[in-house]
Amino acid sequence: MTTGMSTGAKPSTAIAGGGPSPAVAGADDVAPEDVASLQKITSVYVYEAPVRLWHWINALAIVVLAVTGYFIGSPPPAAAPGNTFDTFWFGYIRYAHFAAGYVLAVGFLGRIYWAIVGNHHARQLFYVALWSKKWWKEVLFELRWYFFLEKRPKKYVGHNPLAQFAMFFLFTLGVTFQIVTGFALYGEGLGEGSWADTLFGWVIPLFGGSMDVHTWHHLGMWWIMMFILTHVYVAIREDIMSRQSIVSTMISGTRTFKDDLPD
């Protein structure tokens, strides 16, 4: 059940009466309506349409980038000899890589835009509340949950703090690093004075040289691979074991909770 409002969600049921205020997850990512929503079997609109759309386009772009990027580093067996005009497959691999790179970068910019204008969940990707004691406590709790030291997970509307931590460091920083190094390398081909060279050309000497940037960009791909592995696994696991929906949320946008216990 959705409200369809971009400002977040209204709980379909309200809290009846006092009781201790529940421990609220993600200190900085909480609104009164979220608190309310935690208390009952309910569903709440979390991921707005642009976020969802971005997520899947982004996922596709990353798959294309990773596969083509891998082949750019380690080309498969050579093409048969012949006319170099009508045989262009390595060119196509690189083309696909660059095109997907643009999609990723533009999508990422759009996502940043949405972090500003969208609901507060849309901002979670771009910060971690390292300054918040409460946040660290939550992280600790999540770690204990993942190490099987807690029997019952907490409820979260958005990302849990550990997920947010992983999202920020593995994904957000990873993708930013890939975009910056990627376009720095792309700028080498576009040439001096091109937009990519002007914006990102400084990256090349920063790392030493072009080869160094290539190496780091390649390592960045593996960094994101590790994120994807973890992300997919945890999403499925949490879908099964946590107290809220995960996978379907990124399709429908709504988070449904499996119980109405507080916290």
Binding site: A78, G82, T84, T87, F88, W89, F90, G91, R94
Partner: peptide, 11 residues
């Protein structure tokens, strides 16, 4: 360079 784009490599 055309061989590079074509994927025709010395192995």
């Amino acid at each position: 360079r055309p061989h590079f784009d074509a994927g025709q490599f010395v192995e």
